[in-house]
């Protein structure tokens, strides 16, 4: 069941901190609330990929080496409130919500774009719009411009909306889940795919094969 505006409001006001949704700062709630969603704003920090320092990401390198490689191919950009971040056609960048979000254990959420921006060709996530129960921190945007004209993005503009779904209370909240990589992040976080345990197993298997032959 998707929560309507009154149910979201009740959860924002819930005296029980375990059941409370947190969205802060709420700058203009009367502009941000829709029938089943709350608009979220663009934050101040972005990460863009630069290809000139690296040929590829070799996923079987050690996590420490891959972390260094990621550092080489990611440029962090911070903009102030009156300065735009320009997303050119075909470009991809990571960003995050201005707001700090906390989702209680009996709710899940989805991050979606707003049609106002969709009509200009802005996509706010490529594939990962789902927010687990127990998540806290800033949500990540996977921004891409699929139009043919550059888009100027200012911090604080409402480019997305979040909606909440009732769930049976989980015993596996996001921040307690094993192998959680992004819990509690306050800023835009680059992919930490190489910390997925599969890669450790692949590395071990490759080493075993090298030894065998």
């Amino acid at each position: 069941m998707i929560l309507n505006e009154s149910q979201i409001l009740e959860r924002l006001l819930d005296p029980d901190p375990e059941r409370r949704i947190i969205i802060t700062p709420l700058i203009r709630p009367e502009e941000q609330f829709g029938p089943t969603s709350v608009d979220l704003r663009l934050g101040t920090d972005f990460q863009v990929l630069t290809r000139s320092n690296i040929t590829h990401l070799d996923v079987v390198k050690s996590p420490e080496q891959l972390s260094q490689d990621m550092h080489k191919c990611i440029t962090s950009v911070k903009v102030n409130p009156t300065q735009p971040f320009v997303l050119h056609p075909g470009e991809f960048a990571l960003a995050s919500t201005l707001e700090y979000i906390r989702v209680p254990l009996d709710l899940a959420a989805r991050l979606e774009g707003r049609s106002t921006w969709g009509r200009l060709g802005l996509q706010i996530h490529a594939t990962a719009g789902f927010v687990d129960p127990g998540f806290s921190g800033a949500l990540t945007f996977e921004l891409s411009n699929v139009s043919t004209v550059p888009i100027q993005l200012y911090p604080g503009v409402r480019i997305s909306q979040i909606c909440f779904f009732q769930s049976v209370e989980t015993r596996l909240p996001y921040d307690k889940k094993r192998f959680t990589k992004y819990s509690g992040k306050m800023s835009t976080a680059a992919s930490a795919f190489f910390r997925d345990p599969e890669y450790a197993r692949i590395r071990e298997a490759q080493e075993a094969l090298t030894y065998q032959y």
Partner: peptide, 8 residues
């Protein structure tokens, strides 16, 4: 973030 808030 508070600076963005003030501007808005």
């Amino acid at each position: 973030i508070s600076e963005v808030h003030r501007v808005l």
